Amino acid sequence: MRNTRSLTTAAAVAAALAILVCGGCSSSKSTTSTATTAPATVTATATGSPTAAPTSTESASPSAAISGTAATISSTTVGKYQNFLVDARGKSLYLFEADTSSASTCYDACATAWPPALTTGAPTATNGVDQAKLSTSTRKDGTTQIVYNGHPLYYFEGDTAQGDTNGEESSAFGATWYLINTAGNKIEGS
């Protein structure tokens, strides 16, 4: 009976994770829609596969911080891109060329299409990410954005599934957006 209950609980958690990860599953490269799915708190392996279920401390929107926990920044190799930064759920992270310092220049409509990667604690580096290059900056609204090698980090609202890289080399809001590698530089040349 106990094993059946454990299997039922595990199946429910797996189903919830599948719904959370897929949400509306679309691979659109548009920068005008407003996604509301948040990154979950799980740990990504080097291949980007989740190894834990989301906790109950998830946020309600992609631009909200993961409440009560620090973000985990990892690297993954998915498709044609090598060793780029992802969050703990395997969601791709981008830099914005308009940012010339660790202070973000992306607000309002920009932050809707490119939600900032926020944290409520000190971010943690895993899987080849350099902890010394990982820091934070305070946004105008008082939230804390994750910074890597001096670049504020963002999600792309068009990335709906783990490993999506639909925002790579997109031009929007006056500059180009790039995946960021473990050295802290943009990835270009797709």
Rank of each mutant, 00 (worst) to 15 (best):
S30L: 13
T31A: 02
T32I: 05
T34D: 09
A35K: 00
A35V: 04
A35T: 00
T36Y: 10
T36K: 09
A38Y: 02
P39T: 06
T43N: 08
A44D: 08
A46D: 14
G48S: 05
S49W: 07
S49Q: 14
S49E: 14
P50M: 06
P50I: 04
T51G: 03
T51D: 00
A52V: 11
P54A: 11
P54K: 05
S56E: 05
S56K: 08
S56G: 06
S56F: 06
E58P: 08
E58D: 10
S59N: 01
S61N: 07
S61R: 10
S63I: 06
A64W: 08
S67L: 14
G68P: 02
T69H: 06
A70S: 08
T72G: 12
T72C: 04
I73G: 04
S74H: 05
S75K: 00
T76S: 14
T76A: 14
T76I: 12
T76H: 09
T77M: 00
T77S: 08
T77D: 01
T77Y: 03
V78R: 07
V78A: 07
K80I: 08
Y81L: 14
Q82L: 09
L85I: 12
L85T: 12
V86L: 13
D87R: 04
D87W: 02
A88D: 04
A88S: 12
A88E: 11
R89P: 07
G90T: 04
Y94D: 14
L95W: 04
L95H: 06
L95N: 14
F96P: 09
E97F: 00
T100M: 10
S102A: 09
S102E: 12
A103F: 13
A103R: 15
S104C: 05
S104I: 14
S104G: 15
T105R: 13
A109H: 13
A111H: 01
A111V: 05
A113G: 12
A113C: 07
W114C: 05
P115D: 01
L118S: 02
T119F: 06
T119M: 01
T119Q: 02
T120G: 07
T120I: 07
T120K: 06
G121Y: 03
T124D: 09
A125C: 14
A125Q: 09
A125S: 12
T126R: 06
G128E: 11
G128W: 09
V129Y: 11
D130I: 04
Q131G: 07
A132T: 09
A132G: 12
A132W: 13
A132K: 15
T136W: 13
S137G: 13
K140Q: 13
K140T: 12
D141Y: 02
G142T: 07
T143M: 15
Q145R: 10
Q145H: 10
Q145T: 15
I146E: 12
I146M: 11
Y148M: 03
N149Q: 10
G150A: 03
L153R: 00
L153Y: 03
Y154S: 08
Y155N: 00
Y155K: 00
F156L: 05
E157W: 00
D159Q: 01
T160R: 07
T160A: 05
T160I: 01
A161E: 05
A161S: 11
